[in-house]
């Protein structure tokens, strides 16, 4: 990174008055991979959100499902004359519909879980970095303690106690993810709090709350954004793993992980589509999110800027 001469405005691209967010969008837009990832994600997310209107069938409505249509191959015609584009599962559910509804649940669990985990992690990380003392020591011990266990094990134990359910999976995701955020955000906040603008804010008699929320937090947004994005993908795969293992969402609201698990028994007998298509959907979703997060990291990391 070359420091511009003090008398010349920095970075030519940013000479016009532009908020950092606008600046970020401008650089994001210029990155093919990032835009591609975002487009794929938006299409998948839109399809998932619109599932009730675009899905050929309501997979939760047992009256709409015909058991005689079970395990039809993609494109095969059923007795009633319906053609299922991606086939059906063992209970005769249309796979296209099941995947769309499954995506909905996977995305919802991932996004909601991540939002809460980020909120808790930000609160813990910011206050630990700024307030210090016993609060920081205590919180960070807790974080270290929690991160010393494999996340999936913690989640498994929690769900074994609480039982299945979408809300419980979200709770498990919050519990296993907040510590990671707390650590990342504390690290970022520790760097920022030693900069002189924080001292200047103290010198202007601002409250600790104002300094944390108005001065510290906005300057820690970059790592929050990057880690938050990447961790949505990891929250989605945590959910999928839990559901695959049979402790996640209930069978009445199948997520992608549960669909994969349902088809697993038939994989060996050549009825691949029940597992593989939900798997492909999950893969596309996770790869798209990871690409966005990865490019965001490159864009936001000043050390990688040329």
């Amino acid at each position: 990174m070359t420091e511009p001469s003090p008398e010349r405005p920095a970075s030519g691209a940013a000479v016009t008055a532009a908020a950092p967010a606008v600046d970020l969008w401008r650089r994001f837009r210029g990155d093919g991979v990032a835009v591609g990832g975002l487009l794929v994600f938006l299409v998948v997310a839109a399809a998932a959100l619109a599932a009730p209107w675009i899905a050929p069938q309501d997979p939760y409505d047992l009256t709409a499902i015909d058991l005689f249509d079970g395990r039809l191959a993609p494109g095969e015609e059923s007795l009633s004359g319906t053609v299922y584009l991606l086939g059906t599962d063992d209970q005769g559910r249309d796979m296209v519909s099941a995947i769309l509804y499954g995506l909905r649940i996977s995305l919802m669990v991932g996004v909601v879980g991540t939002l809460f985990a980020v909120a808790i992690g930000v609160l813990a990380g910011l206050t630990a970095a700024y307030l210090g003392r016993w609060w920081e020591t205590g919180l960070m011990r807790l974080v270290d303690f929690q991160l010393s266990f494999p996340a999936i094990m913690v989640a498994l134990i929690l769900l074994a106690i609480l039982g299945r359910g979408v809300d419980k999976v979200i709770l498990a995701i919050i519990l296993v993810h907040w510590a990671q955020y707390a650590r990342v955000i504390r690290g970022a906040a520790l760097v920022e709090r030693n900069k002189e603008y924080i001292e200047a804010a103290q010198n202007l008699g601002f409250s600790r709350l104002r300094i944390m929320l108005v001065h510290l937090l906005p300057n820690c947004l970059a790592p929050i954004l990057v880690v938050g994005t990447i961790r949505i993908a990891s929250a989605i795969s945590t959910e999928a793993t839990l559901s695959f293992l049979g402790v996640g969402v209930p069978i009445t609201e199948p997520s992608l992980g549960l669909l994969i698990a349902n088809g697993y028994d038939y994989l060996m007998s050549g009825q691949y589509w029940i597992s593989v298509f939900p798997g492909v959907a999950l893969l596309i979703l996770i790869v798209a999110i990871n690409l966005i997060g990865d490019r965001l990291r490159d864009i936001l990391n000043p050390r990688l800027r040329t």
């Binding site: 003090p6 950092p20 900069k195 002189e196 603008y197 001292e199 200047a200 804010a201 010198n203 202007l204 008699g205 001065h215 906005p218 300057n219």
Partner: peptide
């Protein structure tokens, strides 16, 4: 607060001492 405001500091680094956001 009166003391804090009446004695103001000017910092060395004109970049680090301004909130970039």
């Amino acid at each position: 607060l009166a003391y804090t405001l009446q004695v103001q500091m000017i910092f060395q680094d004109p970049f680090a001492s301004l909130n970039p956001r």
